[in-house]
Structure formats: C-alpha cells, structure tokens
Amino acid sequence: MIIHINLESKYPIYTQVRNQIIEGIALGELKSGERLPSVRGMASDLGINLHTVNKGYKQLEKEGFLQIHRQRGVIVAPEEHRKADDFYREDSGHQVKMVVAEAICRGVSEEEVTRLIKETYQTFEKGGDTDGNSSH
C-alpha cells in the first residue's frame, strides 16, 4: 500500500496517514497481522516528521486499527479489535450529521448524498479505487 501526502490538503498530515491506512484495511490492501513500517521508517518514506506519523499511528491504535508492540512493531489489528462499539456509533452519527448539514448548506440533495455514500460503500466492498471518494 502506498500512502500519498497532499501538502495542500485541508486535512492535517497525520489525519491523511490515518485515513489512508483505514482505507487500506477496508479495501483489503492491509490484512490483520500485517506489519507496517516503524514510525521512523514511515516518516522517512513519506519525508515527514516522525512525530506526525506517531500521532497518526497512536490515533489508529486508540481506535483499534493498529497494535503497537516494542518487539513486534506496528501491525494491523485483528478484525475483532476493530468492531463497532457505542463510541464509534455515536461518533459516526455526529460525522454523518455534519456531512448532511454541510450538504444542506451547499444545496446538495438528499438523493445525491445517499448516492455518494452508496457508491463509496460499494467501491470499498469491491476493493476498488477510492481516490474520488477519499478524505485526503
């Protein structure tokens, strides 16, 4: 999996790293138990500060997507660690609420928002290219 950093993005670099790793897991490009580069290695590969990568990795660990071990390194967490919990559902509800609110403010119809969500979901299920739908 290749991570692309967009320095012009409105999203912080650590969020871009986080989001692309989650996309990689969703697309099946990253499998449970698979090793990721160390914080230092990822920072070097991307040409960014290691504290930025560390922040993204720590967020992913907190959210259950990664496990960070001193001896084993950074690995993709097993599926059972990534299952939705009440906090996830509440947070997702808030995020959806904000997407809908912004869509309404920008004059985007309910049908268009629904279509975009369905298309994006189907793209992930098929393991396809998400560049048009990603948040980086």
Rank of each mutant, 00 (worst) to 15 (best):
K83D: 01
Y121D: 09
T130E: 09
T123C: 12
H81V: 07
F124I: 05
V96Q: 02
R106I: 00
S109F: 05
G64T: 10
E63G: 01
I75T: 15
G127F: 06
Q67H: 12
Y88G: 10
R70D: 12
G64V: 05
E102V: 06
K83W: 01
E79I: 02
R82H: 04
H81W: 06
Y121R: 08
G132R: 05
I117Q: 02
A101G: 03
T114Q: 13
E90Y: 11
L60Q: 01
A101H: 00
A77D: 03
G127R: 06
D129F: 06
E110W: 06
V74R: 04
Y88P: 09
E90C: 14
D129E: 15
D131E: 13
H69G: 10
G107S: 05
A84P: 14
I117K: 02
M98R: 06
Y88K: 11
K58G: 08
G132C: 04
K97L: 07
R82I: 00
Q95V: 06
L66D: 08
F65A: 04
G56E: 03
K118H: 13
H81N: 09
M98G: 00
E112T: 08
G107R: 02
E125K: 13
C105W: 03
L60A: 02
R89T: 13
D91N: 10
Q59K: 08
G127E: 08
E61F: 01
A77Q: 03
A103T: 06
V99Y: 02
Y121L: 07
E79N: 05
E102W: 00
G56P: 08
V113E: 02
Q59S: 14
G64L: 03
K83Q: 06
Q59C: 11
S109C: 07
D91R: 09
Q122N: 10
A77V: 05
